[in-house]
Amino acid sequence: MLILHCPHCDRMVDETDLHAGGEAHVKRFGPGSEAEEFENYLFMRENPKGVHFERWRHVYGCGKWFLAARNTATLEVYGTYSAQTTEPPQAIRDAISAKQPGWSWGTFQ
């Protein structure tokens, strides 16, 4: 059972108090988008063994969504951060690079 830091409450939270929301940083494509763009938005997801970015909601707490950078193989958590961003903050990227030099995920590295 994972334990993650809720950036809004500034406390460690058990997975039982959280709701997993799938991949982070998915860009929405609406009306006017090409079929392939829409397919990618709706269905295509990363499935890495290693660095991954996820959405979590502190559902039995503050109710806020936040994002987590995590290693799916080692379960190490590199950091959690606000959901109000379109890309991982530099501090998070640096924390990942310190442990996993040369990592990449989607268009991020």
Binding site: L2, I3, L4, N71, T74, L75, E76, V77, K99
Partner: peptide
């Protein structure tokens, strides 16, 4: 193998 333990949130 002490070099390969299960890892926690802090790595």
């Amino acid at each position: 193998d002490a070099d390969r333990p299960p890892l926690g949130a802090d790595g």
